[in-house]
Each structure stands twice: as C-alpha cells, then as structure tokens.
C-alpha cells in the first residue's frame, strides 16, 4: 500500500513540474469555456429550461466540463501513451515480473496526475467562469463533498476505460486508432460537448446508461443538486458499478495479454 501511495505522490510531483504546460492548459480551457458559454447562452435564450437546467446551471455545466477536462482525461492522455509505448517496446515484460500489480501501479500514477490536474487545471477556469457568468454553485459543504466523491469515482471509471484501450496495444500494431475512437466516444457520451439531458429521446437514455456518463454528467448533476436522497445513492451506485465492471474487464484482458507475452516471449 505504501508503494502505491509513493507512486501517487511521485506522479503528482512529476505533473507539478510542467508549470508552463499547466498555465497553457488553463488558458486554453478558459478560452474554450468562454466560447462554449456564449453558444449555450444563445441556446438557453430560446429554450430557457432546456434539459431541465436553467441558464445558471447550464453555465455551471460548461465551466465544470472545462475544469474536469484534464483531470478526468476526457481527451485521453495521462498514462495511456506511456503504457502503450512500454507494450510496443516490449518493456512491459519487465513490468510483469515485478512484484507489483500492473493495473494498480498505473492506477496509482493516474490518480497522482488527476489530483494535480484537478487542482492545477480545474480551479482557475472555474473561478474565471464564476467571475464572468452567473453560476449555480451549491452553498452546502455536504454537496461539495458528494461532488468530490463523484469526481473521484468518475476518474476511476475514466481510468478503467483508458486501461482497456491501452491494453489493445498488445494486439494492434498502432494504438493511435483505438485512442482516437476512445476520445470520440468519451467526448460525446460524457456530456462534454453537450449535456446528456439535452440529447433527444432514446439517444439521451442510452447515453445516460453508458459508462462515460459517470465521468462528467453524474458529477455535474451531483454538483447541481439534481440528485437527492435515494437518487444520489443511485448515482453513486451507477458509478461504482461501472468502475467495478470495467476494472474487472481490465484484469481479464490483462491476463489474456500476459499469457500472450509469456507465450511469445515478449
């Protein structure tokens, strides 16, 4: 356990050294936040209660999306490319003989990254958004705590999904294609490009049932107070359920990959 805590800490420190990159990311998130916010204003101007959100809630959704974009790795990144590179180069064979759990090892690293990016890239865009637009932020500290839990579970689901995608590198020559498809699905079905409750009919229902909803839509609805009481428990159960299922799938695929490495000798 102490080992994984150390991995979390060292990954946090590693990302903390990229100061200019962090500043550049914050700048870009903020610019995009402004652009998207104005398009939503135009939309909510015509339909004031679209998807059950009022304008302030819609604005909150916009800025939350920008704040979580890096931490929840909605555009991919994080450990994924590094892991795939180790698979491609065969270095992963060394990792498999180490007395650590491969999935937990990469998870620890990703958690360290996410914690830094939540702080480093999440807070400033949110503050900018709150200064310029009227946001629907909760007053109750309990709601904030629930929100943080939902974000953490969302990052876990995001990791589990990206771990599955990264493992495809054992079979595919080039991981870039799988990564790209993963980014498309994640941007569309997480609510990043448009809140899922604005999606019409069956598309909306499907999107809300898929794992990507756990990454952004659920944390946003928790922050906006859309889930209360039993609904809140249900939302967490949805996230935990997907996290367990996907992490388990990751382990299965990993053992299949390991057999492949052992048989082919790397």
């Amino acid at each position: 356990m102490r080992l994984y805590t150390a991995v979390v800490a060292s990954s946090f420190r590693r990302y903390a050294t990229y100061r200019a990159a962090t500043a550049a990311g914050v700048f870009t998130n903020t610019v995009f936040g402004f652009i998207v916010a104005y398009t939503y204003i135009a939309l909510w101007d015509q339909r004031p209660h679209l998807g059950g959100y009022d304008l302030a809630q819609a604005m909150t959704f916009v800025w939350l999306g920008q704040a979580l974009l890096a931490a929840s790795a909605l555009m991919g990144g994080g450990f994924q490319e590094e892991f795939q590179e180790r698979i491609r180069s065969g270095d992963v064979a060394v990792d498999l003989y180490r007395p650590v759990d491969l999935q937990l090892w990469w998870l620890a690293g990703d958690v360290g990254r996410a914690i830094f990016q939540l702080l480093g890239r999440g807070i400033v865009p949110m503050i900018f958004g709150a200064l310029v637009f009227d946001l629907a932020l909760p007053a109750s500290p309990l709601t904030w705590l629930c929100f943080l839990l939902a974000v953490a579970l969302g990052i876990l689901v995001s990791f589990a999904l990206r771990y599955l995608v990264a493992l495809t590198a054992f079979w595919l020559l080039d991981g870039a294609g799988a990564n790209m498809i993963s980014v498309v699905l994640s941007l569309f079905f997480s609510g990043m490009i448009l809140p899922l409750n604005v999606f019409p009919g069956a598309l909306g229902e499907t999107a809300n049932a898929l794992p990507w909803a756990a990454i952004l839509q659920v944390p946003a609805d928790v922050l906006l107070g859309e889930h209360q009481g039993a609904g809140l428990v249900g939302a967490f159960a949805f996230q935990v359920g997907w996290a367990i299922a996907l992490l388990a799938a990751g382990r299965l695929l990993q053992s299949a990959a390991t057999r492949k490495v052992v048989v082919q000798g790397g």
Partner: peptide, 15 residues
C-alpha cells in the same frame, strides 16, 4: 521561447 506551451496555440486555432 515557451517550449511547454503548445496548448496555448490550440486556444487560438481550435478555439
């Protein structure tokens, strides 16, 4: 000058 700041460019191009 700012070799880490590739993302600033995205704000203007993609943005």
């Amino acid at each position: 000058w700012a070799s880490d700041a590739a993302e600033v460019q995205s704000a203007f191009t993609y943005g």
